[in-house]
Structure formats: structure tokens, C-alpha cells
Write a protein that binds this DNA or RNA. Structure first.
Length: 439
DNA sequence: TCTGGGGTCCTAGGACCC
DNA sequence: TCTGGGGTCCTAGGACCC
């Protein structure tokens, strides 16, 4: 049996832990540029705020309905996530961390009442971190996701499902007719892997509920869609096609991209931004002990600014030899950027992606054909030492304590800097932002 | 005025190999 | 004049996830 543990409205719940006055109020958390809503409390959902909805579209609810908006505080959420994951891991032999707020647990071979274990897990996480979770148990991952959906929905919308399924839902203890009723009451779009487009096409074919999908002809669906949906149907029928992977591979690509607070046209500013983004991805690259074979850069104008001429180029620059050296990667990113930038366009977004990742320390399989002076190991090793020292300094003295000059922030916050006007303190990771209690 | 960011996997089609 | 068959690799684009 598998479990899926998931924090309810993760980002909002993290904020509420340190500001209980947010409880029972409509709250949203905004994306990096205070641009769109990326998390909503149940009360905000009730007001009709949609996922990823632009903030300016719902801003009026601040006055009319008491909606509260906060800037995203990813440092806080990441730290809260780590605490929650560590607690959840104690309850099963294997854990797969699936996203910042979700993990799968594999209970294979664990005796006892799983629903009781689920409730114990839930209350421990709640007591130790303050985060409310939902837990779903089932024989496959897809069903466990569905059971979790039922647990959450039964809690949030009374009457949608039997009350007994709220918070912790174990499909394993339902009778066949009970399970069938649940499948009939659930829209097909709630299934993991069935997105917007597929839902629309399935609906056209008369498949609207999970029960419809479960009973459909899997091989016909495979022909019409792809092998992915066939696997989903098999999982819904109880055949496990996926296992809990507690040692996921390193990322195959690492990206940093962001919209600006204001449009940018000039190359020097874009170079500064690209250098900063590259600094971020390079550190992540070294964290996972990989090297990158190529650097990809893109810039884009805004499709929403209809009077602007549009330009959204990208370029990929292969490196002579794979590297994790921030200086090398920035040089490549800047060259790629220079090759695509055109003056006169209002760019509102940029991104840097590291691709062709490989584990570090592998023998150089393809030495540079044109490397007339092939680098010996000595400069290579000194570059690695430099990066190690850089990471250690920034770990100890704070991000960007030491950085490559082109990535240095000149003066105060610039116009293109991302807006974060409503960010809460990073209570758990910065000593000077720690929560204070008053008598 | 203001419209998220970071990932994965699958498929189709073209280039290329012998 | 007639012009194969089986395979790999790469890329772009699309769909999905949270």
C-alpha cells in the first residue's frame, strides 16, 4: 500500500503558523513579482480566486472581502517543507519527496491499521510544525493521489463525500460499492496525469467521471492519446505501474527565470540579470554534484503588451568541456545573450537554463578537438577549489556575500528587480528575522 | 500599470548509419 | 529505367505536474 501525504494550501498554511490572525481569513500568496496568486486559503477559493490568477484581477477583493495577499517567501516554505518531510519519513520504510508539499510513502510489509497510522502522522505533523495535511492510502500511486484528493475535498466541502473519508482516506478499507460511489462522484480531471486538454477530449468521448475512465478501453485510449493514459487507467484499476523512488536521479536541467518589475531594453541590465540567474543555477548545479554541457538563455517581451513589438529569442551555447564554474557559465550565458538581444524591444522576462548535465568528475570522454593547448588537471582543480570556497563563504555569510563582478547588484534595488512588497519574515532561517513573542 | 517558475516525459519527424 | 529496410540519435513541441 502507498500513501500520499500532502499539506493543505501549503504556502498559506506556512504563513498562518507564524501569524495565527490569518486563520479563517481569505489569504493568497503571490508569485515572485507579486504578479499572480500561487496559493489560496480555502476562504480565498470560496471567493472565486483561481490558481495563477493575476493579482490585479482580484485586488478589489482586498477592500470588498478582506482578502489578504502576501509575497512568496520560498525560504520559509522550503524550510517548513524539510521539517514536515522528516516527520512523515518516520512512519514508513520508504519515502519519495514528490514536491515541496507532497510525499509518497511505501507501506509495503507494514502491519497494522493504516488509517490509524495516517491519523497519527497527521497529528504529529500538525503538532510539531503547525501544518495541516491530508493523507490518502491505496494500492497504487495514482489511487493514493485520488484518495488524498477525496480526503481533502471531504474536509473542505461537506457533502461531497462521506464525512468519514475526511483528512485521512484509505481506499483499502472501502467496500466495492463504496469505492464505486467515490469514483462516480469524482470528475475525471481530478485524476493525476489527466490535465485540461485531455479532460476536454475525454469529455467529448463521453468520459466525465473517474468511473467512466476506469471502465474505458485502455488500448483504444492508448491509440487515441498516448501510453501515459493507458498506464493511468491500469493504475486506477489497481495494478501498480509505478513504485516509490526514494533516490531520485539528479535533475536533467536546472533553470532560473523571472519576470521583471519593469520592462528592460538595454543590454547591460540584461547582462547583470543573466549573470545573477547563472550564479543561482551554477550553485544548484554544484549542490547536486553535476557539470553542465551547455547553457541556454532566453529573453522575452510581453504578449500582454499588445502595442509592443514582440521578440522572444533563445540561444543554446555548448561549452568546450562540461563545467560547474560560475565564471565559465556566466561567460557563456553572456555570449548567448549578446547573440539574441536586439535593441528597442521591451523585454519583461529572462531565463538561464543549464542543460546536458552530467555527474561531476567523469573522465572527459570527448576532449576539445580544437583545444590546441588542452587544459591539464591543475587549472581544473584550482577552479573547483575556488568554487568550493565561494559556496562555503556564501553559506556562512549569506547569499551573494561573494559573487562574480558582472552579477553584483549596482546600487540599490533597480527598477527591474522583482517586487516583493508583502513578504513575511523568514522566521526559521534568519536569526534576525526570528519570530518574537510578547507577554 | 499589473498576467508564476521549475521541472518531467512522450511523440513525431528528420538526419544519419549500414 | 529500376532506387530497401532496419535501426539510432537528436530536436522541437506538447502535455502534464505542483
Amino acid at each position: 500500500m502507498f500513501a500520499l501525504v500532502d499539506v493543505n494550501n501549503m504556502y498559506v498554511s506556512c504563513e498562518r503558523v507564524f501569524r495565527p490572525s490569518l486563520n479563517a481569513r481569505p489569504v493568497v500568496v503571490l508569485s515572485n513579482n507579486d504578479g499572480a496568486c500561487i496559493a489560496r486559503s480555502n476562504e480565498a477559493k470560496e471567493l472565486g480566486v483561481r490558481m495563477a490568477q493575476p493579482w490585479f484581477e482580484v485586488r478589489h477583493l482586498e477592500r470588498t472581502a478582506g482578502l489578504i495577499a502576501l509575497s512568496a517567501n520560498f525560504e520559509l516554505y522550503g524550510d517548513m517543507s524539510a521539517r514536515m518531510m522528516a516527520l512523515a519519513a518516520e512512519f514508513a520504510p520508504r519515502q519519495e519527496i514528490y514536491s515541496i508539499d507532497e510525499c509518497f510513502l511505501d507501506f509495503d510489509g507494514v502491519p497494522g491499521d493504516l488509517a490509524a497510522i495516517g491519523r497519527a502522522l497527521r497529528s504529529k505533523v500538525l503538532q510539531w510544525t503547525g501544518l495541516p495535511t491530508s493523507v490518502g492510502f491505496a494500492p497504487t500511486k495514482t489511487l493514493a493521489k485520488l484518495a488524498n484528493h477525496v480526503a481533502k475535498t471531504a474536509e473542505r466541502k461537506p457533502g461531497s463525500y462521506p464525512r468519514a473519508l475526511a483528512q485521512v482516506c484509505n481506499f483499502g478499507e472501502l467496500t466495492a460499492p463504496q469505492l464505486e460511489a467515490v469514483m462516480r462522484a469524482t470528475e475525471v480531471g481530478a485524476v493525476w496525469g489527466i490535465g485540461r486538454k485531455t479532460t476536454a477530449r475525454l469529455n467529448e468521448g463521453g468520459i466525465t467521471t473517474v468511473l467512466d475512465l476506469l471502465r474505458a478501453d485502455a488500448s483504444a485510449l492508448r491509440r487515441q492519446f498516448s501510453v501515459v493514459i493507458e498506464k493511468t487507467v491500469r493504475e486506477l484499476r489497481g495494478t501498480a505501474c509505478m513504485s516509490v523512488d526514494d533516490a531520485p536521479d539528479a535533475n536533467q536541467q536546472i533553470m532560473c527565470s523571472r519576470s521583471f518589475g519593469a520592462p528592460v531594453t538595454d543590454l547591460p541590465t540584461l547582462i547583470e540579470v543573466a549573470s545573477q540567474f547563472t550564479t543561482q543555477v551554477a550553485r544548484k548545479l554544484r549542490d547536486q554534484r553535476s557539470v553542465a554541457g551547455a547553457v541556454q538563455v532566453f529573453i522575452a517581451t510581453s504578449p500582454y503588451r499588445q502595442n509592443d513589438r514582440q521578440h522572444a529569442p533563445s540561444a543554446t551555447l555548448p561549452l568546450p568541456r562540461p563545467s560547474a564554474d560560475t565564471r565559465v557559465l556566466i561567460a557563456a550565458a553572456v555570449r548567448a545573450l549578446r547573440s539574441i538581444h536586439r535593441p528597442g524591444f521591451n523585454y519583461v522576462k529572462a531565463g538561464v537554463m543549464l542543460v546536458d548535465l552530467q555527474p561531476e568528475g567523469q573522465p572527459d570522454a570527448t576532449p576539445d578537438l580544437f583545444g590546441f593547448d588542452p587544459p591539464t588537471d591543475a587549472p581544473q582543480r584550482s577552479a573547483e577549489k575556488l568554487m568550493t570556497a565561494l559556496d562555503a563563504l556564501n553559506q556562512r555569510f549569506g547569499r551573494d556575500a561573494v559573487t562574480v563582478a558582472s552579477a553584483a547588484r549596482h546600487g540599490g534595488p533597480s527598477a527591474h528587480a522583482s517586487r516583493q512588497e508583502r513578504r513575511s519574515p523568514r522566521y526559521t532561517t534568519r536569526l534576525d528575522e526570528i519570530a518574537t513573542a510578547r507577554a
